[in-house]
Design a protein around this nucleic acid. Structure first.
Lengths: 232, 232
DNA sequence: ATTTAATAGTGTAACAAATACACACTATAT
DNA sequence: ATATAGTGTGTATTTGTTACACTATTAAAT
C-alpha cells in the first residue's frame, strides 16, 4: 500500500479442501507430496499462485490438475499466515474449499502435476496426519460448510444431478454429524419448492426404488440470493 | 508449497474496515493517503505485513496506529487478489473488519503513520470515492456484518458498556437497513438472557430517561459458542 | 408362490417462535 | 400547565418446529 517499494514477486500459495460425498460419507481429496517440504506426507492439493493469474484462477487450475474437471463449485475460506506454518519461511496460503459431484469423476483422479505422487479420497472422519497446517485448514472448511448448508443450497453441489431425498438427507446428516427425522426433513425440504419431482426412480436396488428429484434451477437461483433457513 | 524456491520477501498488505456507531449511523474510518499510489485519495487504513508478524498482529498494529486502542474486536474478511487491484503489480490484500466503541475514543483519531495524512469517520451511506478496490472491500465487510449479527452478539462491540435497548435496536436497524418493531425486538432480545438490567438510567435527555443495560459476560460467552438466531 | 429383508413414503397433534399491532407513562423544557 | 419526545408494555394470530409409527414396494431367498 506504500509507494517506492521494489516490485517483488508474489509468494503465496493456495490450498484447496475438495469435498466429495460417497457411500453416505464425506470425503476429502488429499495428495501424497512428491516434493520437499513434507515429501511423502499427505497434504491438501495446492501450489504457488502464478504472477499472472488471479487467486480464483489458480484454484481452478489446481482443481483441474487434480480432478480433470472444470467449473467446480468453490469459495474462498480463509488466509493462513502463521510465522511457522511453512518451513521455508512465512508463506501465506489462501485456502479455498470446493464441492464436487463424485459421480462426475470417471475414476480415481490422477494428478497431472509433479508435486503430487497420487491423489486419494479420504473419509473426513479418518484422515491421516497432514503436512503444514492442513489439518487445521480442513477443520475450518468443514465448519464453514456446516454453517453454509443452513442458509444456502450448496449441498446439491455434492450430489448427482438426479438424487433421492434419502441421499439428500444423508448428506445433511454427514455434514452436521447428526441424525434427522425423515418426515420432517422431507416436509421442510419440499416446502422450499426448489426441487423438481421426476417421474424416474432409482434403479438396481433390491428394495423399493426411491423417486428421483433434481433442482429447479430457476427457483434455486432465487433462493441463492434470498437465503434459506435450514436448521436442525 | 514447492521446494527449491528462493526465500522471497512476502509482499502482501492488510486493509481494515473499521466500523463505528454514532448518532444512529454506522461509520467507517477512512484515511487520506499521504503516499503514492492514490496519494490524496481516501482509502482504508492498511499497510504491508511485516515479515516477522502474523497477519492478525499486523492488523492489531494498524488498528493501534489509527485509533490508539488495543484489543479491538476484529475478524478476517476476505483476501483480494485481482491482477489490477494495485497499480504496482499484483499485491494481494488480506482484508479484516473491526468493530469499535466510538465512545472509547477520546477525540478524532490521529494516525501515527506517515502514509496517512488524516483519519476521518465517514457515514457508511455517504462514502467518498476510494482508492484501490477499497469500495468493494467495504461492501463485502458490511455484508458479512449484516449476516453475522444474526447469529452472534457482535453488535455489542459497537456499543458503550452501558446502553439502552433503543440504542441496541437502532444499531440493528442501521446494520440491516430496516426498521424493527420495538415490542418484538425487546421481547426477543431480553429472552436471550444475555443482558443485565441496571438500576441506572440515561442522563441529560429532555424526555423520559431510558433504562441502561449491559452484557452479562458469562451468558454472553455461552451464546458466543452456541450461536443465536436473530432475524427480522 | 410365499416369505423375508430392506428401504420408501406418508400425516397429525402439540408446542414454540415470530409477527402485527396501540396506547399509557414519564422526564424535561417552556 | 402543557407540549414534546421517546420509554415501556401485552395479546391474539400465524407460522414454523418437533415428536412420533405404520403401510407400501421391490428384489432376493426359500
Amino acid at each position: 500500500m506504500q509507494s517506492n517499494l521494489p516490485h517483488l514477486q508474489s509468494t503465496f500459495t493456495t490450498d484447496c479442501v475438495i469435498f466429495g460425498f460417497q457411500g453416505g460419507e464425506l470425503k476429502v481429496l488429499l495428495i501424497e507430496r512428491n516434493e520437499y517440504p513434507f515429501k511423502g506426507w499427505w497434504a491438501l492439493p495446492g501450489f504457488f499462485v502464478e504472477h499472472s493469474e488471479t487467486i480464483d484462477d489458480a484454484v481452478e487450475r489446481i482443481l483441474y490438475e487434480h480432478t480433470g474437471l472444470r467449473g467446480i463449485y468453490m469459495e474462498q475460506l480463509y488466509t493462513f499466515g502463521d510465522l511457522k506454518r511453512h518451513p521455508q519461511g512465512r508463506i501465506i496460503t489462501v485456502a479455498y474449499y470446493a464441492l464436487l459431484r463424485l459421480d462426475d469423476l470417471e475414476s480415481q483422479p490422477v494428478p497431472v502435476t509433479d508435486y503430487a505422487r497420487q491423489a486419494v479420497w479420504h473419509p473426513l472422519n479418518n484422515l491421516p496426519e497432514l503436512g503444514f497446517d492442513h489439518g487445521h485448514i480442513i477443520d475450518k472448511a468443514i465448519q464453514k460448510v456446516r454453517r453454509k448448508i443452513s442458509y444456502s443450497p450448496i449441498a446439491f453441489e455434492l450430489l448427482p444431478e438426479k438424487f433421492t431425498l434419502t441421499q439428500l438427507q444423508q448428506l445433511y446428516e454427514a455434514i452436521w454429524g447428526r441424525k434427522l427425522d425423515k418426515r420432517n426433513f422431507r416436509k421442510k425440504m419440499l416446502n422450499y419448492n426448489i426441487l423438481k419431482e421426476l417421474s424416474e426412480f432409482q434403479r438396481g436396488v433390491s428394495y423399493r426404488a426411491a423417486r428421483l428429484y433434481k433442482l429447479d434451477k430457476r427457483k434455486y437461483a432465487k433462493v441463492f440470493q434470498n437465503e434459506l433457513t435450514f436448521s436442525r
